[in-house]
């Protein structure tokens, strides 16, 4: 694995390498180097199996992390390629031409994270959602609890008491009030 990482380092701007396990290494590169790197890994290094593509929302830093994982069936190692893209007008070069299933991942990311992949087939078609006009739901700022409270009617049930507050009311609450 080390030789592959060295090769990547020699040609790309690698900002971080994490050897997670003996058969799994992550490298972080610039976003515009991802597709060339994927292609090189597939065609020259033998990472022929594309495992997954997904995004992680680091909302605090204002970036999406894209993670591509490749597998080398011969050497039996996995390589994770990470890149960061800006959350604002998030867009990434499409890799749909490299493996047939990549377009599906990119379509999902467009819908769930709002990351655009210009040129990717059917990227704008609805995937899981139907008639969704909210924030892309996998973005961290989309609050599922708030959404469900606004959208649905909760079934009225009994109130739950906090043991601590309840004991205070029952056992030692006094009516002292500070002077205003």
């Amino acid at each position: 694995m080390q030789d592959i990482v060295d090769k990547i380092r020699s040609r790309y701007d690698v900002s971080e390498v994490t050897e997670q396990r003996e058969n799994l290494t992550f490298v972080t590169v610039e976003k515009d180097q991802v597709v060339p790197l994927l292609m090189q890994m597939r065609d020259q290094e033998g990472f022929s199996h594309f495992v997954l593509l997904t995004a992680v929302d680091w909302i605090e830093e204002g970036v999406f992390q894209l993670t591509y994982i490749l597998n080398h069936p011969g050497k039996k190692v996995d390589l994770g390629i990470r890149a960061h893209i800006n959350r604002e007008h998030a867009s990434m070069e499409s890799a749909h031409h490299l493996w047939q299933q990549v377009a599906t991942y990119q379509r999902e990311l467009k819908e769930m994270f709002g990351i655009d992949f210009p040129g990717s087939p059917r990227v704008d078609e609805e995937f899981f959602l139907e008639g969704w006009d909210h924030t892309p739901p996998m973005r961290r700022e989309f609050d599922t609890k708030k959404f469900s409270e606004q959208t649905y009617f909760p079934r009225p049930g009994s109130k739950s008491y906090d043991p601590r507050e309840y004991m205070k009311q029952k056992l030692y609450c006094d009516d002292y009030e500070e002077e205003q």
């Binding site: 994490t18 997670q20 992550f26 495992v51 997954l52 997904t54 992680v56 993670t67 994982i69 996995d78």
Partner: peptide, 20 residues
């Protein structure tokens, strides 16, 4: 803090969790 990808062979093939 960290991330990993753990996979196993399900009856249908490669099944994996990417956890961050």
């Amino acid at each position: 803090k960290g991330e990993t990808y753990v996979k196993a062979e399900a009856s249908r093939g490669e099944f994996g969790y990417y956890v961050v």
